[in-house]
Design a protein around this nucleic acid. Structure first.
Length: 715
RNA sequence: GGGCACUUAGCUCAGUUGGUAGAGCAUCUCGUUUACACCGAGAGGGUCGCAGGUUCGAGUCCUGCAGUGCCCACCA
């Protein structure tokens, strides 16, 4: 028995060494596995593309959870003999990264992006992104993730940019990408538009004011934003509202807080007669609903009264005032003119920007959109329909299943996707203008062409991730299935087998991947979607900087080992459900790693001889099959728990105890140990690999490519 | 307003197709028997939210109710 077993298991000296040996072996690369003869060349493939972490800093426990789950499937499939590929990568995360760097620069140098200029800011961001990238990569390795580093990708590198431009052009040519002037979600803080999905609503206390535009105006109107009323062009009432019927069609002039306005009274069935006074002041340029109403009645959208900095643009006392100040001033004015009828306290859902927290100002702007309702190619389907079909048919399976209902519901409510952003970091929109001419896709030659200033929503490139990482479009035509080499990845590994991510980015990302892949390739991006929940603290609170309740994955792995962290994250953690984690929980699995260590110590102290006991072998093989089925059916939370329970309370507490002083057990003990290490390897790769080293006989040098002990029931 | 889920032992949660309730942690008692005190042996503890229904039989299926959480829409 090796001397190392005389001391308790020490993850700190073992894990880094083992990972380095795995990396050196090249076995994370499926081509290398074939070359070394541990995987057959003609077997089915299994592939996962890592959800790329944002290059905004360091990883959190949610990332650790993602890695633990994905590595379980990847290691399991590799041991089962599949040509298994797990591709690493990072995400430039346009808005998120730029705003982090801008904040830093503001703090340390007091400068904003315009002080630096596009080129200099990009340089700074790239430097920051590179540093984040290195931190992230080392964290991924610390967790034991068996990623093929030779294929690492970045959403903003040359290959991925080529994919982005190619898809953009294809969508433009199909008439799905268009430029339109309409109300968008403008974030005055981030100085950019954002998509509907990036808007989060916060409940806040507000006041609902009831007022009249002037003394002789016949209808009182209720609003929570009095300052926007200088931009009103109409008052809408319900067509059947008997109180107001007689005024419909009449027009009035007034001077509202120094601003001359012209109001037409119109009837529209969208107005709820029971809310407020049953009359809506219509501000076409600063509200989506009002824009739509004014469209239906042929009213102008031209009256713009708020700018990109959320300041008033009208003449008079409100000029250049922030909207919040202007609100108070308008209320004061209404009071002094005796036009305010009442104010009530109400709670209001206020739209804010997910990244910056800025309050969204709806503004009319010329932006790029993806049309989700237009029938486009020979299939005669809309993007919405293309998104629905694979989930409805079962071609894509979502785990847990009930999320498909949420998915359908989300698609029903989906509107055109605004994809242009007024930030500098990211994929610049591949459109060039010269006079009235426009070129899309690739940069034209000649000096007269000016590229669009905007960049693309970061989710545009993330949406291509399953195939942009596999050599599309460069090798898509020539890739050959069954042939090794990354130039054949697209044929070998797409569609991918599993997409594993948090349910919180289900819409942002998973839905967009289905959209992009169905459009571009007429196929699915992945066969299965496994959604994990949020990692919360011991009290069930979200982990956050402000609460100071973050667990740092690096601290946790340093203290208890990556194996322990992985088990703590996986055991009993059902998909789609939030989980709680605490140091105590992780400590429990550190103890388990040590228990396993001591099991090995005991078994290895026995002479390997004699026959394997049939009843114990039968019992173990049944467990082995059970674990295998659990993993196949995505119940890794159960598989992990069963292994824990068997090894500790059956193997150690009963079988080993029984065997003491009885030499005829030793072959059985070796049999169980060897195969338990295999079953446990996907969950606790380090300690199992380290014990494997010391087995007297084994079927493979590395446990990570040893033969899985049970075949799946369906085979 | 629309949708989705959850409610099982003190706490955190499992319970795959219906067959007389499980785990981890915590608690209590005992044990220092050389693989392991990062240990072992044992114990207590649940009318499975409430009310109906289907069934020979329901935590598991159906209906209703209550509470909790999340997502989407956003009403001026």
């Amino acid at each position: 028995m090796p001397e190392k077993f005389l001391k308790p298991y020490d993850s700190t000296v073992t894990e880094a060494r083992i990972y380095a040996e795995w990396e050196k072996s090249g076995l994370f690369n499926p081509d290398e596995c074939v070359k070394q003869g541990v995987t057959k060349a003609d077997v089915p493939t299994y592939s996962i593309v890592l959800p790329p972490p944002n290059v905004t800093g360091r990883l959190h426990m949610g990332h650790s959870l993602m890695l633990a789950i994905e590595d379980v499937f990847v290691r399991y499939k590799r041991m089962r003999g599949f040509r298994t590929l797990w591709i690493p990568g990072t995400d430039h995360a346009a808005i998120a990264t730029q705003s982090v760097v801008e904040k830093q620069i503001k703090k340390h140098e007091g400068k904003n992006r315009h002080d630096l200029g596009r080129e200099e800011l990009l340089k700074r961001i790239e430097k920051f992104a590179a540093e984040s990238h290195d931190t992230i990569v080392s964290q991924l390795k610390t967790m034991g993730a068996s990623l093929d580093w030779s294929r690492e990708a970045f959403t903003l590198d040359a290959e991925r940019s080529r994919a982005v431009n190619t898809v953009f052009k294809k969508m433009y040519d199909a008439g799905l990408i268009y430029r339109g002037h309409r109300i968008v979600n403008w974030d005055p803080k981030g100085q950019t538009t954002i998509s509907d999905d990036e808007v989060v609503y916060e409940e806040r206390a507000a006041k609902l004011y009831t007022f009249r535009y002037s003394k002789d105006f016949p209808i009182p109107v209720a609003t929570t934003r009095p300052e926007t009323k200088v931009g009103d062009v109409a008052v809408a009432v319900h067509p059947d509202d008997t109180r107001y019927k007689k005024f419909v069609g009449k027009e009035y002039d007034a001077v509202f807080c120094d601003v001359p306005i012209h109001i037409k009274i119109i009837a529209d069935k969208e107005v709820d007669p029971s809310f407020g006074t049953g009359a809506v002041g219509v501000t076409p340029a600063h509200s989506q609903t009002d824009w739509d109403i004014s469209d239906r009645h042929g009213l102008s959208h031209e009256v713009i009264i708020i700018n990109e900095y959320a300041r008033m643009t009208v003449d008079g006392r409100l000029k250049d005032k922030k909207t919040t100040e202007a609100r108070d001033m308008v209320v004061e004015w209404l009071k002094s003119e005796d036009l305010l009828e009442k104010d009530e306290n109400v709670t209001q859902n206020i739209a804010t920007a997910e990244r910056t927290g800025g309050i969204i100002e709806p503004l009319p702007k010329l932006q790029w959109f993806i049309d989700v309702n237009k029938k486009f190619d020979e299939r005669g389907k809309t993007l919405k329909e293309l998104m629905l079909e694979p989930v409805r048919s079962g071609a894509i399976k979502i785990i847990p299943e009930h999320f498909d209902k949420t998915y359908f519901h989300w698609i029903e409510n989906l509107r055109d996707w605004c994809i242009s952003r007024q930030i500098w970091y990211g994929h610049r929109i591949p459109v060039w203008y010269s006079g009235d001419e426009i070129i899309v896709g690739e940069a034209p030659t000649g000096v007269d062409w000016i590229q669009d200033e905007d960049s693309l929503d970061t989710w545009f490139s993330s949406g291509l991730w399953t195939f942009s990482t596999l050599g599309w479009p460069h090798f898509a035509e020539t890739a050959m299935r069954g042939k090794p080499g990354s130039e054949n990845d697209f044929a070998n590994f797409h569609p991918t087998d599993l997409l594993e991510t948090g349910y919180d980015i289900f819409f942002f990302w998973v839905a967009r991947m289905i959209l992009m892949t169905e459009f571009t390739l007429s196929t699915i991006p992945f066969r299965n979607v496994y959604l994990h929940g949020l990692v919360r603290d011991a009290q069930g609170r979200k982990m956050s900087k402000s609460l100071g309740n973050n667990l740092d994955p690096l601290d946790i792995t340093a203290k208890f080992g990556a194996d322990a962290a992985r088990m703590a994250l996986v055991v009993g953690n059902t998909p789609g459900t939030d989980m709680r984690i605490s140091e105590d929980k992780v400590r429990g699995y550190k103890h388990f790693a040590n228990k396993l260590w001591n099991i090995a110590r005991f078994v290895l102290s026995q002479k390997h001889a004699g026959e394997i006991k049939e009843n114990l072998k039968t019992e173990f093989d049944a467990l082995s099959m059970d674990i295998t089925n659990d993993i196949e059916e995505f119940r890794i939370y159960m598989a992990a728990e069963k292994l824990y329970h068997y090894l500790w309370h059956r193997f150690a507490d009963e079988i080993i105890e029984e065997s003491k002083g009885r030499t005829e057990y030793s072959a059985t003990l070796y049999y169980i140990l060897e195969n338990s290490l295999k079953l446990l390897h996907p969950f606790m790769p380090f300690v199992t690999e380290e014990i494997w080293r010391s087995l007297p006989t084994k079927d493979s040098e590395f446990l990570m490519v040893a033969k899985w002990p049970a075949q799946h029931a369906v085979e």
